[in-house]
Structures are given as structure tokens and as C-alpha cells.
């Protein structure tokens, strides 16, 4: 394992650290609130994982610069999304390989362009211009928006449940609750 791998992949190390921290908190903590916090850390690590894999070195946010958009607007009114995907594909291919993962991504993404044959025509005109620009892959970010929403819903529900548990038992320590339950059932 070279230094390059250790420092070049630092994002992934962070992801792993966060993931394990969160996971450990979930397993080890008996306080229900802390369990939820652990769960959140765990989920956040996944968000970071996705964002990392979508990021291309030197890439900008996948927004078409106004001047290009103005030039080619008339060609692309109906296929902006397609061409974005297409150019992202190319960009990933051109980007310097950061790590193994992107390397595989490279091979994998190539067939993707074949699927896009039908948009190739319209997009090719734009490709000339966009080669100067490097975009990050927007899809992981979009996915993570959804995942964050799901995460918030989960947290909200978990907290709501904790409120009810606390009302019923007067505590949010799991072992105390189990103790109370045991005492109940032995009576």
C-alpha cells in the first residue's frame, strides 16, 4: 500500500471511519437518543461515499455555463438532461484516474455511451465545446438528496417513538426499560 493510496483515497478512509463509528455507536450505546445519533452518523458516511464517487477531479458542478447554453440553446431545448449525462460520461473518461474505483468506472461507463446512441447526434455538437469543461457526475448527489430525505424521516419517526417510550417508561435507557419489563412480567 503506497502513500499515494493512503492519501489519494483519503475520502474513502473518512467514509470508513465514519461508518464504523456510527455502526459502533448503534451497537454499543444503550441510550436510545445516542443510538439514533449513531444511526445518523452511519447514514452520513454513505452520503459521503456517494458524493465521493460522483466527484471528478477538477470537475465543476454540472451546470451548463450560460454562454454555451446561449450558443446551443436552440439545438438542445429538449435534450439537456441527455446531453448532460452524455458529457459526464465523456468527462469521467477523460479525467485522470484517481483510484481503482474510477478506473472501473471508466470501463463501465464506456458501454453506457452506446446506449445513448439516439442522443449522440444532438449531443455531438455540444461535445466539441464541453471537452474544455469537466463536470462532476450529478446523479449521486441527486440520489443522496433522496437518501437524506429518507434519513430525516427515519430520524423523525425514531424520535417520535422515543418520546412515546419516554412517556410510558419514564426513561430512555434501554437496559432500564428491559428491567422494568422484566419486573412487569414477573408480577
Amino acid at each position: 500500500m503506497t502513500l499515494d493510496e493512503i492519501f489519494g483515497l483519503y475520502n474513502y478512509w473518512v467514509v470508513i471511519c465514519l461508518m464504523m463509528t456510527g455502526f459502533y455507536i448503534v451497537i454499543a450505546r444503550k441510550n436510545l437518543i445516542k443510538t439514533v445519533i449513531g444511526l445518523n452518523v452511519f447514514q452520513t458516511s454513505v452520503v459521503l461515499l456517494y458524493i465521493t464517487m460522483g466527484k471528478v477531479t477538477g470537475g465543476t458542478a454540472p451546470i451548463i455555463p450560460p454562454e454555451i447554453a446561449a450558443q446551443h440553446g436552440e439545438h438542445h431545448e429538449h435534450s439537456t438532461a441527455h446531453s448532460t449525462a452524455h458529457s459526464t460520461a465523456h468527462m469521467t473518461a477523460d479525467a485522470p484516474h484517481l483510484d481503482h474505483a474510477t478506473e472501473h468506472g471508466h470501463e463501465a461507463v464506456t458501454p453506457l455511451t452506446q446506449h445513448a446512441d439516439h442522443v449522440h447526434q444532438t449531443a455531438s455538437a455540444m461535445a466539441d465545446h464541453s471537452t474544455e469543461l469537466i463536470y462532476s457526475n450529478p446523479l449521486p448527489s441527486v440520489l443522496m438528496l433522496t437518501a437524506i430525505v429518507v434519513g430525516i424521516a427515519t430520524t423523525a419517526l425514531a424520535l417520535a417513538l422515543i418520546v412515546r417510550i419516554s412517556e410510558d417508561y419514564g426513561t430512555i435507557e434501554e437496559d432500564e426499560i428491559l428491567l422494568i419489563d422484566q419486573r412487569d412480567s414477573s408480577h
Binding site: A101, H104, G105
Partner: peptide
């Protein structure tokens, strides 16, 4: 949630492989 998050990680890795 742990299960679902595992699923999410798996999906992410697959996406990384195939785009």
C-alpha cells in the same frame, strides 16, 4: 435502517462499477 443503509452502500458500489 441498518439493513436499508447496507443496501444503499451495495447499490452505490454497483453504480460505481457500472455507471
Amino acid at each position: 435502517t441498518i439493513g436499508a443503509t447496507f443496501l444503499l452502500i451495495g447499490i452505490g458500489l454497483l453504480y460505481q462499477m457500472t455507471g
